[in-house]
């Protein structure tokens, strides 16, 4: 697997979320821009009110400014949150092996996915008690993002995604379950094969799952499988050893 392949797949997954991410940032930006203008105008009016000793008027202007300052704080935190989640995906290639809290990688992927489907799909997280995991964090974040994007695309209209994590012997098991359309019986054997897709052109490349399979198996010595029922939903299970030394050399 080349860095180029990894990068292209990451960009494709992020690209499908970009409209949602823009919307998520645009709303607080719009608020801050307006507030800034209103505060400047408030200062003029406040100066005038003080000069004319209109205490009540001055107090009401101060109250307005206070409410705007608290909105600005919330707005900036919202933008910072999106930027933080995006940062996880900013670097190219595999990066270095690190000890990682897998839950924070999952939360970042969830935060980005929610930008695109917050009003349509509820994402629930049911996390077990896990040790830090030895892995390539960029690549693992990409696996989570891919699985989540796939799940949102499988759900037409409103739905639910549940992410569960648990420790099983020396491996961490992450499962992503959606109540979307499911996979047809005849497609099951092709799902993890490179180039297979049922998505329309421009939506899917058919590479995502084959690349995340490589990330999981070749880079991390883990495994990936799924269960699905047409019309009911799909659950993907990713199993990754906590320590890479336990599986010998990866890719």
């Amino acid at each position: 697997m080349t860095d180029l392949e990894l990068e292209a797949n990451k960009l494709a997954a992020l690209g499908s979320l970009i409209a949602g991410i823009i919307h998520e940032i645009n709303t607080p930006v719009a608020s801050i821009l307006s507030n800034n203008e209103v505060v400047l105008r408030s200062l003029d009016l406040l100066e005038k009110a003080i000069a004319e000793s209109q205490t009540e008027r001055a107090q009401s202007i101060v109250a307005i400014c206070r409410s705007l300052a608290s909105v600005d704080k919330i707005a900036c935190e919202r933008i910072a949150g999106v930027v933080r989640s995006l940062k996880t995906f900013a670097r190219c290639g595999e990066g270095d092996i690190q000890m990682v809290d897998i839950h924070s990688s999952i939360r970042n992927a969830v935060a980005l996915t929610e930008c695109a489907c917050k009003r349509r799909i509820a994402i629930e997280m049911d996390f077990g008690d896990l040790p830090e995991m030895e892995c390539y964090p960029q690549a693992i974040s990409q696996v989570m993002l891919n699985l989540l994007v796939n799940a949102t695309q499988a759900i037409e209209g409103e739905g639910k995604i549940v992410i569960r994590t648990r420790l099983d012997d020396d491996s961490i098991v992450i499962s992503v379950a959606d109540n979307g359309r499911g996979i047809r019986e005849e497609d099951m054997s092709k799902v993890l094969v490179r180039g297979f897709t049922t998505k329309p052109e421009g939506v899917g490349t058919g590479l995502g799952l084959s690349i995340i399979k490589k990330i999981v198996t070749e880079l991390h010595g883990g495994s990936i499988d799924f269960e699905s029922q047409w019309g009911v939903g799909t659950t993907f299970h990713v199993r990754i050893p906590v320590r890479r030394s336990q599986v010998g050399k990866g890719a």
């Binding site: 608020s31 209103v38 909105v71 009003r119």
Partner: peptide
């Protein structure tokens, strides 16, 4: 559905 937008516009209209 975003309270922050409501607060911003409300503050602007209250002032002007």
């Amino acid at each position: 559905d975003e309270e922050m937008v409501l607060t911003s516009i409300r503050a602007f209209l209250a002032l002007e």
